[in-house]
Design a protein around this nucleic acid. Structure first.
Length: 780
DNA sequence: TGCGTGATTGTTTTT
DNA sequence: CAATCACGCA
């Protein structure tokens, strides 16, 4: 029996597809990584393709690492010659070799978003742009979108004619790009952009890679942006020995999981693949191997509310599974505590371990309260993505030393550390040096070396030269072949007295900070040990620039993981808690109030689909009627996505913390149908001592229970009353249900604002349901 | 130059 | 509730 026999029919067809473009529409959990890895194996084993000629592109290092590992496992030999890497690393690798043709130095550094912001700050200062009105972040996002669309500063300027704001953006973009170049630095978007630029200017480079990459695979194709699309297209446009274009391009994606529009992802890349390549073969993978029937159905029902999707229907042979749970809490603290307690109980019961649980949320800020509760309970956990390790202050400081030593042209790094620890070199001095540097067309560091010639420095000049000689000494040391990066770091800490300085500052979390430095040391050591030959400083800096939090997930083994829905894509967990299912949180306030809410809500819905389909066995959704967000209390109604899940798939619970639901402080109804009109979630910014505004447009005003204009302090009291509608059936009556047909009412419970009715259906079995959802009709 | 204070202000998601 | 910023003082 061969390894290919374990594949289903469609998977097999995808794996065995011969030449020409192939689009694999792979639903969530349909085994797409399996198909990709088996296809690579198949190409090598059965079609004699040289591993050297295969390129597999992913978006995250984690995905790349997984694919590499799985390929290694099924391919006997030669797998190390396959290029399996992220778009960004691939581009870095190419640029390291060729970027001099674009006028950059091959030792370029990569700027992260903090660096970008610092640089943009300088640009704004230089161009005298008031960053009160135009924030650095928004300018950067304009530039980022331009780069995603492969628009150069010059083109941007051309398009900006007659538009004052755009002309301003154009000048910012130009200056920003100029400074990046003089710092010999590239930002994330440049990595892709410059690679396409390289391929368009250097026939030699393009031909080289076209010849090399005769088979190209792209994972998560729905997330590609225009620049990435162009890159793939250029690479796959090569001519084979017979002189024809084969386009051996295999892309895998799921339009329903396209969640990176904000980052420039162009969903038409996947929707129009067949137009771009009319000869393309399309294969759909619709069998899900991950989730229970109920979870999958919930996901299908939610995503069905989107229009303009590629037609597909996911199904599974897995068991029915437990119902999906929805719990409505009063407060975010209760939500967190309840979830954390539940995880603790489950683990204590012995069936499951911490790593089986994931807590997913829309925004990073929501992790905080969970962290609090997890710490109290002593549960091991890992929060992905909130702050990247390499973005920590201490780490950035020390890395800036490394960068300064490795690439003196990176002025940002030099400026960052010139006064860390304090050397008495202040802003005024830096400005003078900067002026001199610009005036003489030299780098900032070069200007520092000439400090003696800079007018007006006086005492600072001596301080600068001692800094320069420190760097120079370190530079000469790293040139020695036996001197490692970890030695260098050690030396930097020693020579600068960095740790002593840290201790001297008497910060409250001093120990954490020192521990972080230790962690950096061990990461460097690990990097050096993993390398086949002694890595260079720039190798390490490159690794650091491209690694994300998520990539290290496998390092911590048995922990509960917390992350955003975006980060969760591609992962799976037996238990998934999808929390903060509230209007204004998820879907986000931004999407509800966007210029084009329809489109934005669809993206949120895809995100919800991604979240639901992460769950294998147990899915628990929750919302809070009251939530603290950045120092203010929000009152939110349950998310519309809850309502999109059919009732018969859900069990609902309300305020488990209140034994008496009538005393609940809840301001939002559990019953989504109750608020038939969708309106913005209410946010109050109360003046001290007085609540005003409030749950505008919520069910409460709609129901007439209280008026928008009334004070909130009074509202909860008034809301004590019950909303129980009347039901015209009782225990023992026969009723009919729209989906389940005819059944016998066996029990009715008062569940706070609603009745929970238990019905014994002749065909569908016994179901518990909320009276207001079930719309039961009395028959006798 | 550097530090402390109070005020202001912000919010999605990330390679 | 943060993080950032302007301002004033040593």
């Amino acid at each position: 029996m061969s390894i290919y026999d374990t594949l289903n029919e469609e998977q097999k067809r995808a794996v065995e597809h011969n030449k020409g473009p192939l689009l694999i529409l792979a639903g969530a959990g349909s085994g797409k990584t399996r198909v990709l890895t088996h296809r690579i194996a198949y190409l090598m084993e059965k079609r004699g393709v040289n591993p050297w000629n295969i390129l597999a592109l992913t978006f995250t290092n984690k995905a790349a690492g997984e694919m590499r590992e799985r390929v290694d496992n099924i391919v006997g030999y030669g797998s190390e010659n396959i290029w399996v890497s992220t778009f960004h690393s691939t581009c870095v690798r190419i640029l390291r070799r060729w970027i001099d043709t674009l006028g950059y130095d091959k030792g370029f550094t990569i700027y992260d978003s903090d660096d970008q912001k610092s640089l943009m700050r300088e640009v704004c200062k230089y161009l005298q742009i008031d960053t009160k009105n135009l924030k650095e972040r928004s300018l950067l996002s304009v530039i980022s979108s331009a780069k995603d669309e492969l628009i150069t500063p010059e083109e941007y300027e051309l398009r900006a004619v007659g538009d004052f704001t755009k002309q301003k953006y154009a000048s910012v973009y130009k200056e920003y790009q100029k400074r990046l170049k003089s710092n010999n630095a590239l930002d994330f978007d440049d990595l892709i952009f410059k690679t396409t630029e390289l391929f368009q200017t250097s026939k030699e480079a393009l031909t080289y890679y076209q010849r090399r990459f005769q088979y190209i695979m792209v994972d998560e194709y729905q997330d590609t942006n225009t620049a990435q699309f162009r890159l793939i297209k250029l690479l796959s446009d090569g001519i084979n020995e017979e002189g024809s274009r084969e386009h051996n391009l295999c892309v895998v994606g799921d339009d329903d999981q396209s969640i990176y529009k904000f980052r420039g992802a162009n969903i038409f890349n996947i929707l129009n693949f067949e137009k771009e390549y009319p000869q393309a073969k399309v294969i759909k993978l619709e069998q899900n191997y991950r989730s229970s029937k109920r979870i999958l159905e919930a996901a299908n029902e939610v995503i069905a509310n989107n229009v303009g999707r590629k037609d597909k229907a996911l199904w599974t042979d897995n068991s029915e599974g437990d119902p999906v749970r929805f719990t409505q809490f009063d407060r975010d603290s209760q939500e967190a505590e309840s979830i954390v307690n539940e995880i603790a109980q489950n683990v204590q019961a012995g069936e499951d371990s911490y790593q089986d649980f994931a807590i997913l949320y829309r925004t990073n800020a929501q992790s905080r309260i969970f962290e609090e509760k997890l710490v109290v309970k002593g549960i091991p956990y890992k929060i992905i993505g909130s702050i990247n390790f390499y973005a920590r202050k201490e780490v950035k400081d020390l890395l800036s030393y490394l960068k300064t030593i490795g690439n003196g042209l990176d002025s940002l790094a030099v400026k960052r550390i010139i006064n860390i620890p304090k050397r008495g070199i202040g802003l005024a001095t830096i400005d003078k040096v900067e002026e001199y540097a610009i005036g003489n067309g030299i780098s900032f560091y070069e200007a520092l070396r000439q400090a003696d010639y800079i007018p007006g420095l006086q005492r600072a000049a001596a301080k600068i030269s001692s800094f320069v000689s420190l760097i120079e000494i370190l530079k000469s040391k790293i040139a020695r072949p036996d001197y490692s990066i970890s030695d260098l770091l050690e030396e930097i800490i020693e020579a600068t007295g960095y740790i002593e300085d840290l201790k001297g500052q008497e910060l409250e979390n001093e120990d954490d900070r020192i521990e972080i430095i230790g962690e950096l040391k061990s990461k460097i050591v690990a990097f050096e040990e993993a390398a086949l030959e002694p890595p260079s400083l720039s190798d390490f800096l490159e690794e650091v620039a491209l690694v994300s939090d998520l990539d290290n997930l496998a390092e911590d083994n048995n922990v509960v993981v917390l992350m955003t829905l975006h980060s969760a894509k591609g992962l799976e967990f037996p238990y998934v808690y999808l929390c903060g299912m509230e209007e204004g949180i998820f879907p986000s306030y931004m999407s509800i109030h966007a210029e084009d809410p329809e489109t934005e809500i669809e993206e949120e819905r895809r995100l919800c689909y991604v979240g639901i389909t992460r769950a294998m066995k147990h899915l628990s959704l929750s919302a809070c009627s009251q939530r603290m967000l950045r120092g203010e209390t929000q009152f939110n109604r349950p998310s519309r996505f809850i309502r999109e899940i059919p009732r018969y798939l859900l069990t609902m619970e309300q305020n488990p913390y209140n034994s008496n639901p009538f005393r609940s402080n809840s301001h939002a109804s559990l019953v989504p149908e109750f608020n038939s009109r969708l309106q913005p979630a209410g946010v109050s910014r109360p003046a001290p001592g007085s609540f005003k505004g409030g749950a505008n447009g919520s069910n409460l005003s709609a129901s007439g229970i209280f008026d928008k204009n009334k004070n909130f302090t009074q509202a909860p009291k008034e809301f004590g009353g019950n909303n129980l509608g009347t039901i015209d059936y009782g225990i023992g009556d026969t009723v009919s249900h729209i989906k389940f047909g005819v059944g016998l009412v066996t029990n009715i419970n008062n569940a706070g604002r609603d009745y929970e009715v238990t019905v014994d259906f002749s065909t569908a079995g016994t179901k518990k349901m909320m009276a207001s959802f079930a719309k039961l009709k009395k028959l006798s």
